[in-house]
Design a binder for these strands. Structure first.
Lengths: 234, 234
DNA sequence: TCTCGTATGATTGTATACAATTATACGAGA
DNA sequence: TCTCGTATAATTGTATACAATCATACGAGA
């Protein structure tokens, strides 16, 4: 970690540095690079057809994103995410998602409300059909809507950070066929609370929603991820 | 904001880029550069006696730190912090500081406990003498001890981020002569709860501690900061 | 006088050259 | 055989040169 939470987004997708940044980010999150793998500037720059300069700048940003660790004069290494890290993030998120739901209750716009309803309705359909891929996508989007609705740039960004960061692990957990539909049912309840302007209920439901996701993850996917982590350390 | 919360620290204080980064950071937080002021690569590099390369890399990092905003092909601008941003951060911090106190209760080491006692004792002394500068320093340190004691890299970094980010505003609030001693009295109570292994109490006290700081800030310093912000926007 | 296009300069973006540091290989000496 | 020092290669760190983009000034034409 390392910085100071009112962070800026890396929106520049058009400069070479921006492209390198986003592509490396994608590759790391998707698992193309193993944890603790060393990223060499020349190799990356040749692979992407650019010079070292934009690669280095992208590295600096990825370091602050927590995706790589740079050891001075040595190299850049893909950071591992430990079991404890993931657990901690879920606990922290449970608090912040609660706060987010509270604020969303107070600030959500009619348009956002409508998109949320559509999201839950659509997800229900895909859940019944067993479309796990679409379900995962809608799950992500539901939370994004919530983040935007809370009307706090700070909190929104904070949560998006966490959300994206645990995606590596989360992919595994949501592919658990049981959790998807359950998760969406919880979304529906959160949405109802927001609709009824019951901020207390929305907060506690959103909080519990994260705790449930956490419990599910501990039971299923996390062990697998942890084993992989251990193996890499051998 | 903008990044993915398991962030790395920028520990490299020895490379030119590291020095530029830390110095610029210091200068921005201390107020040497006005909000919305444009930072030019050449000017900075000449001032610090280095080339543009390390300056540019430091800029990328400062952008993710949220201290500057980079508009592609235009320039780097010191970010403003709005009244709402600060308020949001305090609310978020109040939750996380509570969680931190809870975890600290469970994981604090005897050495950390001892440093905390020493901190509170010393602060009491300086409070009685009206040494505001030392009091502010000890206040910062108290929270750092708490962050380290919670034994969660993720949460520790998250809180350090927030803590440092609002320092610009916080300096003003703590210079309010009343808050310093009050704050330390609250520290003492938090410490007692941790010592007695009462995690629930520690959490609620730490939470309230932040709320109090927030209330104090709203009453005193924030208005001033906000006026300055408005003035810059004119 | 006003508008708009163009030229000029300033600034950022990228590539490349060079310096400093680190990793590796190899061989001398014990 | 093992250890350690040195030479070499590989890699990162920094400086500089060049390209692309943006801001400004100026003047032609209406």
């Amino acid at each position: 970690m390392g910085s100071y939470n009112v962070k800026q987004e890396v929106t520049d997708k058009y400069s070479l540095r921006g492209r390198v940044f986003h592509r490396l980010r994608e590759d790391i999150l998707s698992g193309k690079y193993e944890e603790h793998e060393e990223l060499k500037e020349v190799a990356i720059s040749e692979e992407m057809g650019v010079s070292r300069t934009p690669v280095r700048e992208a590295f600096r940003q990825l370091e602050l994103e927590g995706l790589i660790q740079i050891i001075p004069n040595k190299g850049a290494y893909v950071t591992g995410i430990t079991e404890k890290d993931v657990k901690d993030i879920y606990i922290i998120r449970s608090l912040l998602e609660g706060l987010c739901a509270r604020w969303a209750t107070e600030h959500i716009t009619p348009e956002q409300m409508e998109e949320m309803e559509e999201n839950v309705y659509l997800a229900e359909f895909h859940a019944s059909k067993g479309h796990l891929e679409q379900l995962a996508e809608l799950d992500n989007r539901f939370h994004d809507i919530l983040y935007e609705a809370c009307d706090s740039k700070i909190l929104e960004h904070q949560l998006k950070d966490f959300h994206q960061y645990v995606l590596r692990v989360r992919k595994k957990t949501l592919s658990n066929a049981n959790r998807g539909p359950k998760s969406n049912a919880e979304h529906a309840r959160i949405m109802e609370a927001i609709k009824n302007k019951d901020a207390d209920l929305a907060e506690s439901l959103a909080h519990q929603h994260m705790i449930n996701a956490y419990d599910n993850m501990v039971k299923n996917g996390l062990h697998e991820a942890y084993e992989k982590e251990k193996k890499n350390n051998e």
